[in-house]
Amino acid sequence: MFRDIATVRFGLAEQKYIATESIATTLFLASRLEKPILAEGPAGTGKTELAKATAAATGRELIRLQCYEGIDEARALYEWEYAKQLLYTQLLRERIGDMVSAATSLAAAADAIANEENVFFSERFLLARPLLRAITSPKPVVLLIDEIDRADAEFEAFLLELLSDFQVSIPELGTIKAVHKPIVILTSNDTRELSEALKRRCLFLYVGYPDAESELAVVNLRVPGVPPKLAAQVVEMVQRLRQLDLRKTPSMSETIDWARALVELNVKHLDRGAMDATMNVLLKYESDVQKGKRLVTRDDDAPADVTRERDRDRGRDRDRDRGRRDR
């Protein structure tokens, strides 16, 4: 486990994950206080990667539960294996027959079967889903509950017992406590508000878009063979595109994909041709691609200092608008 905050940063960096001070501190506290982390932020900013890197850094298995609308405990926690139960009853038919043959009445026969019903409702017939696997694992694990905001409010409520006490209740078996408390990371893309009860049980971590310096470090780390100049140009362009009013702002993972695409195409220098050919890797809507292309066209027509000044103004306008909306 992590000795201090520096160890967290170092451990994650070894897994090619550049952790900010707040990420490292929150992860350190989560491991020490044995509390889940609720990582919130736009898609593609490295929340899921954080769980993967944590698992790799601690040498633990990563158990992932991908949430979706309508997910229920049968998909998340456990299910009885009816087919296996039936198969066993068929195979054990003679043995069951022997057992009830001594009974003198129907009630006595039913009692004899009831005495043995624990056999059929035991862990042998339990199909463990990710949550149950995480708490019954003989080794400590990292549990990733991904995109919790996609699940229903009922499912959120169902998770509360697990997140606060690291235990689950199964009616036929009773309460199952965690063998080893897992490191739990919940991610949310902030598409809906989560319940206060859930948030109360977690440490909150906001993971936003990285600044240029961090993004450049990530690109250099995650894209082998990227020329330094190209990496710097890619990051600069992405940072500028994020200032535009796009339908979908490019995420960190899209920056990496774009840099990889450019390296694959053997691009050494980001020029207009390369941008036109690959911008759809970065921007996912045609209207956004057009806005990106217009930005490049304006750059070609304007002196560099004018371009920089215009970007700064645009950034200020956008910040102001965001500020107004946040208020």
Binding site: T25, R32, D326
Partner: peptide
């Protein structure tokens, strides 16, 4: 309070993150 026990309180940044992650659960 528990979070502060785990960190070096002389590190202002760590204190800030420890308190923020345990007390504030909404970006707003």
């Amino acid at each position: 309070l528990r979070a502060l026990e785990q960190i070096d309180v002389a590190e202002r940044g760590a204190v800030q993150t420890a308190l923020q992650s345990s007390l504030v659960k909404e970006r707003a």
